[in-house]
């Protein structure tokens, strides 16, 4: 079953075509990686899919519905969640509160003014589970901004996971991490995807990782898709090698 589909999706900034006629089709349960050089338009593609920017042209279908032009919070409510390339967690809130905000979004009492937020026990339980999954359950009451960088990156993912997405878009989740952290983070993502049963769309620069975790890979260059296929095929694809991989694998 296809969970996400785009049709000639295009985004222009003046003369610059950041995303150029992208046709993407992602099956449910898949881990799909998007790779491409800096400025290829990967993050912009995420912005379009999540409704954070309006496309110049094209359509987006998610989980059977056309979501083109829908407000980003509405899209999120339909089960799409994302993390950001530059960490964007709620620095002034504790780790637990961060995840609680995400976890309470489906609760009917999410905008209640008179209840104690910590009194929503399912939300609290769910949030603690997420913290356990990302390995921060030992410090739930520490302010997010007081965490080390690597832990903030984990929280970034935790936030995106805590609202029970069907599709998770991860924008360079390991950006800025050392190789050890990178590996453990990617294992965490794989485990989460399996346990919680969501589809992953992953932007990642570390090709070794990409080759290991992806079911399929889409390669972007100058906004357009230049290749798509399973890791092995991409590895062997000549256009990709020439244009992008530049002999890394040869």
């Amino acid at each position: 079953m296809t969970i996400l589909e785009t049709e000639n999706l295009t985004k222009k900034y003046g003369n610059l075509v950041a995303v150029d006629d992208v046709e993407l089709s992602v099956s449910a349960g898949e881990i799909r990686s998007i790779i491409g050089p800096n400025g290829a338009g990967k993050s912009t593609l995420f912005d379009l899919i999540t409704g954070m920017q309006p496309p110049t042209d094209g359509r987006i279908r998610f989980d059977g519905t056309d979501i083109t032009g829908m407000a980003s919070h509405k899209i999120a409510q339909r089960g799409m969640s994302r993390s950001f390339q530059i960490t964007d967690v709620f620095g002034g809130l504790t780790a637990l509160e961060n995840v609680q905000v995400a976890a309470q979004v489906d609760d009917s009492r999410r905008s209640s003014m008179l209840r104690d937020a910590d009194g929503l026990s399912e939300v609290h339980g769910k949030a603690m589970d997420v913290l356990a999954d990302i390995g921060l359950d030992d410090r739930p009451h520490q302010r997010a901004s007081d965490f080390a960088y690597g832990d903030r990156r984990k929280l970034e993912i935790g936030l995106a996971v805590a609202n029970d997405p069907k599709l998770l878009l991860l924008d360079e989740p390991t950006a800025g991490m050392g190789s050890e952290d990178t590996n453990s983070t990617m294992q965490m993502v794989q485990r989460l995807a399996a346990d919680r049963d969501f589809t992953v769309l992953l932007i990642e620069h570390d090709l070794e990782i990409v080759m290991n975790v992806s079911d399929r890979i889409t390669v972007l260059q100058d906004g357009g898709v230049i290749a798509e296929g399973p890791p092995e095929a991409i590895q062997d694809d000549e256009t990709v090698q020439e244009a992008y991989l530049g002999g890394v694998f040869s």
Binding site: A71, S72, S81, D88, V89, F90, V105
Partner: peptide, 17 residues
Amino acid sequence: RVVKAIRESERRTASLG
């Protein structure tokens, strides 16, 4: 909680739904 989250990052809060 949501109000405080908006203060910290409106974009992020919206992206959570």
